[in-house]
Every structure is written in C-alpha cells, then in structure tokens.
Computed example of a mutant assay.
Amino acid sequence: MPPFARFTALASTACAILLWTPYAQAEKLTLMTGGATKIVYLPVTLASRLGYFRDEGLDVDILSEPAGVDTATELIAGAVQGAVGFYDHTIDLQSRGLEVEAIVVLARSAGLAELASTKAAKPMQSMADARGRRLGVTGFGASTDFLSRYLAQRAGLPANAYTVVPLGSDNSFADAMKNGSIDAVMVEEPTASKLLAAGTAQVLVDMRSIEGTRLALGGPYASSCLYAQRKWVAAHPDESRRLVRAMVRSLAFIATHSADQIMAVLPRDFVGANESLYRQALAATMPSFSRDGRMPDGAPQTVLGALAAVNPEIVPRHVELSRTYTNRFADEVNAVAAH
C-alpha cells in the first residue's frame, strides 16, 4: 500500500492526479535543491517520501546545496537534470545567454524574512537602517542576496551603503545572529522561526506569506520551482511530464493534509527537536504553496522588475520571460485531474 494511504483521503481533484501507469524500469534522474530542509522546498521531499517519483517510473536522487545559486551552477554544468530553487535564477541565467525554464512552480510567496539581530549594539528597526550594516545572505548571487539588495534599494540606500556577508548554512545564520557579527539576515523557514523564538532576531520585512510578499515586492511572485535546461526539457518531454505529475501530486497532498500529517512523512532531522515550532512554521507556510503548479499570472514581471532594479546587467527588454517557464506540463496534469 502506498505511504499516502495512511492519511486522510485526497479531495476529488487530487484523487484524479493519483492515477498512474506502472513503469517496467525506473529511470534515474538527479535533482538538486538549495537546502533540502527548507520548508519552501518541501514538495520535492514529500514527492520522494510518498513514492510519487517511483510511481512515475523515476528513480530520483535528491542532492542539497546551501544556496540556490550553487544549484543553478550544477544544472548548467550538466551534473544534475533538474534544479529545485528560486525562479529568479531562470531570468538571471537567460540574461547571460543560458536557457533554462521552470516546469512546475511550488510556492507563490518569496518564503523569506529579513530579520534584524537583537544582539547588535543598535538593532535595526527597518531596512532604512541598513546603512553601514552587515547583511547576511546564503551566498553572492543567491535569491537572498538579490532580495536583500532590492529591499535596501527600496528603502533608499545605494548598493555601497552596506556590506553583504555570505554565510552559507542555516547554522552559520544562527551563530552570526547570536554573536551579533551581522546586523540582519534574509532567511527561510524553519530557520526564521527558530531565530525569532530564540530571541536573537526581530522581523524587518516579512515575505513568508503571499500577502507579505505582495506588500514588500509590489506584485504576485513565484519562488521555489523545479527548473531545467530548455534543451533537456525539449529532449525529455515524457520525463519532464512525469516529474511535474509527481510534484503536483505532492502539492495536492499539502493542500489536503494537516501539518501533523505532513510532519509524519518527513525525516526526523527535518523537523528537529522542537516539533511545536516546526509545526507552527509549516502551518503558516502551507497556504503559500501552489495548488496547481502553474506560474502565477504577473509573477515573472514582478521578479524581473526586482532583479533588473539591483542588477544593471539585466535589461528587461532583452529578457524573454516566456522562455523562463512553461505551464505546458502543469496544464496537462490539471486537465486530466478535472475529468
């Protein structure tokens, strides 16, 4: 019996997605995430844990790197077939002549919060206080990097008014905030909730919800997604379709199950010692996940606008947004589910 059968039955639409054809031999694929334990990437972990990839005849190996920019690098190098990271990388790569596209969108919020260290001599109260401060990010070129710069710019600060500090892992974030070596940090869940609960941080800008993202960035958004090189998708439409079908099933599972039921599927080290804290962070994040895997209307334009504002090398008129994502596979999956 498939693992998901232990839990509440899916809604009628989700049930239609559960239909699959057995495959004689599993095809090996490798995906890489920008931090597997981050809640924003939860759908790929669930698709693996619930056997959805296996049901599609895929043997998927999931690797993890601290920063999404490293994931993008591995994808372009051909080391992995798919990257589970933020959509903004597809636009950035295209501006540099590298063709990749998101084939399924996972989250409709940025899923991030800019937190100020309460251990700093004079804690920041807003992004306007970033002048002369040290801002922590996962890495140079990461989504946390560009969004930190964009928020500072919107607060009226030039790029040379503050220092960006690449920190890499979640543990480094916690240590830097605790000892006051950085003044603020851009971080995902569950790390954001851990820092806030520890009293080492306070919220400056909250983009963990759809509403908070719209308020901070000015429009609809897309963050975590599964993207691949366009030439790979063109050459492997069936594998792409099966990957998307598994991911949309995973999104349906999130939409029709409680935080406790989802946590029961996850590896123990994902949840950590403080189950109640993780449950709270997960429950708050769940409404931000996509229901259908499609790119939200207007989201590419919002992401491009923010990227171009902080990176003069990205000229909007030279970017073909229609080539940075496709709804083709998600539409096919949802069409089947509707019948």
Rank of each mutant, 00 (worst) to 15 (best):
L217S: 12
D206R: 04
V205K: 07
L196E: 05
P190C: 07
L195Q: 01
R214A: 05
D238A: 12
A234D: 15
M177A: 02
S209M: 10
T191K: 09
M177V: 09
L204R: 05
S209Q: 09
P220R: 00
K194I: 04
A235F: 08
A184I: 07
V244C: 08
E189C: 02
T213G: 06
G180Y: 11
L243N: 10
M247Y: 02
S209N: 05
S169I: 12
A201L: 03
L215V: 14
M177W: 01
S223C: 11
M207R: 13
L217N: 10
C225N: 13
D206S: 00
D183P: 10
A246Q: 01
E211Q: 14
G219F: 03
N171K: 11
L195N: 08
N179D: 15
A198Y: 06
L167Q: 02
A201T: 07
E188Y: 12
M207I: 05
S223V: 09
Q202T: 12
Q229E: 13
L167E: 01
K231F: 13
R245C: 04
C225A: 12
Q229D: 11
Y227P: 00
I210F: 15
G218P: 06
R245I: 02
V244Q: 06
Y221V: 08
G199C: 10
E189R: 13
R242E: 02
V233D: 07
T191G: 05
M247V: 01
I210G: 07
R241D: 10
V248D: 04
A216Y: 04
D206G: 00
N171L: 14
C225I: 01
P237T: 02
A234L: 14
L195Y: 00
K178W: 08
A176E: 12
A246I: 00
P190K: 00
K178S: 15
S209V: 12
A228W: 03
A235E: 15
R241V: 12
P190T: 05
G180H: 07
G180F: 09
M177Q: 08
R245A: 03
S193P: 14
K231R: 03
G219L: 09
L217I: 11
G212H: 08
R230W: 12
L226Q: 03
C225H: 04
S223D: 15
A198P: 15
P237W: 00
T191Y: 09
A222L: 03
V248K: 01
G212K: 11
S224E: 14
S181C: 09
G212R: 14
D183W: 10
L226G: 01
A201F: 14
A197Y: 12
V244I: 08
Y227F: 07
T200Q: 11
A234Y: 13
P237E: 01
V244G: 06
K231M: 15
I182D: 04
G212C: 04
N179L: 07
W232V: 11
V203W: 07
S169V: 15
Y221K: 02
N171C: 10
R245G: 00
G199N: 09
M177P: 15
R214L: 00
R241T: 10
N171D: 12
P237I: 05
D175A: 15
A184D: 03
V187L: 08
R242I: 05
Y221A: 07
L243D: 04
R208A: 03
E239G: 10
M186W: 07
T191D: 06
T191W: 02
G212N: 05
S240H: 01
R245H: 06
